[in-house]
Nucleic acid binder design. Structure first.
Lengths: 249, 249
DNA sequence: TGTACATCAGTGAACGCGCGTTCACTGATGTAC
DNA sequence: TGTACATCAGTGAACGCGCGTTCACTGATGTAC
């Protein structure tokens, strides 16, 4: 019986299924809207239902709990950010931009999305929501933006334009300029997991640059630049370019 | 009459005043404890009062509202982090460490404090608490940690060991290697406000490094390094050293 | 030193609120024969 | 094509909870003379 239902569902979506998909989408949309207005901690099933003209218990036909709705929003946020990054990458490829220009394009896309969706950004890159543990299913979407950055560097390496260890640390104490063994191991493991052919130093620098990029964005978004940095666009571009240079682009 | 009371209060603290100070401290302590356990959004006046064996309304003799208690916690967090950074700086001076070593020492102190007090860190460097606006009074304590980093660089510059624009961006396109005018202006304004004698490029790089440092710490703390970076201490040290090099140390 | 008065910490009840979740139900839509 | 039955979206009431804040009060501690 179950299998019959399933094959039918796969063959064509009945009216009920379509309605269900639409309402699920409407719930997520309204939840996003409230997320954007009030932030994640303030997200309430009852408020979402109210706004949609439903009774709060009806939402339980679509999401088994508040946390599941939160998970859906987190996944959507990661996906939207990832899509923005990937689009920027694809566009810069179409324009056959140089590796540093591609890097900057992806960085800008990440920042642009963050500025346009500050609460969604805070949801995924801000303090963890208390009492909420992101399930395994979010790790895929979570890595999309990072993978766009990785792709830029991997392509530069493949075409031989990557310059290892530019300036970097330890200029003064040249003796210890090698990557510590533990970092080399981590970098190799990560490269293997991603199917990357990158020198460990570059992989390591890339991870650092990734975290630092989000540091720039978080500080801007969370107000730490108030009365410190005024020319935000210029500052970001300049810093993002420097990050690209730091990974060897 | 008011002036008489005030002069007396200043002359010596009566038993009542001492009791008041002690209980105020106890409230903040308990609130900190709950902050560490549950996070800022979950901080509740009633829970704090309960734990202290008081009735919830009694807290209003000490803090006029929940937000004022939050402000006190934020100030304390900034101050504790600032003190950790300043102590590390003072200690590295005592050891007459090199500028890069001092930089690393301060960075480590910041990270160490963050790892030891993750919720307090999240309170001040994570997503803004929804519906809460930090008052002007927090900006002083907020800058202490940053000023410790600034001091390292300023001292290196004063002794002539600061190397301008090391590696930096634009190696390929040497033409535009100058700092954009807007960034130069921001950097000069900031340096003037802090009474700093630093070249604009160094000031600018310092601000970027400051944001990037917290990016490294936030990613580690907020779980983005899961299954990516395992050797966290080594990774941090390596990255922090690179940041120091990027500002010219 | 003793007394009258002012100050102030802490009490306990109450207000009004919104929340997540459960549950028995109704009625419409889809399915099987 | 028509009928009996199963599925499922949505209802409305309820449970039990915790929250921030107000307010009139009591009783202890401090102050002025």
């Amino acid at each position: 019986m179950a299998s019959m239902t399933e094959t039918r569902r796969n063959r064509s979506l009945g009216a009920r299924e379509r309605a269900r998909a639409e309402i699920t989408a409407a719930i997520k949309e309204e939840a996003s809207r409230q997320l954007a207005e009030r932030g994640a901690a303030q997200l309430s099933l009852r408020a979402v239902a109210r706004e949609l003209g439903m009774v709060s218990s009806a939402l339980y036909r679509y999401f088994p709990s508040r946390d599941d709705l939160l998970t859906a929003l987190i996944t959507d946020a990661y996906d939207a950010l990832g899509a923005a990054a990937e689009d920027a990458l694809a566009d810069s490829r179409r324009r056959t931009a140089s590796p540093p220009a591609r890097w900057l394009a992806v960085c800008r896309a990440v920042r642009g999305w963050a500025l346009a969706h500050p609460h969604a950004y805070a949801l995924v890159y801000g303090s963890p929501v208390p009492g909420y543990e992101a399930p395994q299913s979010t790790t895929g979407p979570a890595s999309r933006a990072a993978l766009a950055l990785v792709a830029v560097v991997a392509e530069a390496h493949a075409t031989g334009t990557l310059q290892p260890d530019p300036g970097g640390p330890h200029r003064e104490t040249g003796a210890e300029s090698a990557l510590p063994a533990e970092l080399e191991r981590d970098a190799a493991a990560l490269a293997a997991r991603l199917g990357l052919d990158l020198p460990p130093a570059a992989t390591n620098a890339l991870v650092a640059a990734w975290a630092q990029l989000f540091g720039l964005i978080s500080f801007e978004l969370f107000g730490q630049f108030t009365r410190v940095v005024e020319a935000r666009d210029d500052f970001f571009d300049h810093s993002a370019r420097a990050l690209g240079a730091a990974v060897g682009l």
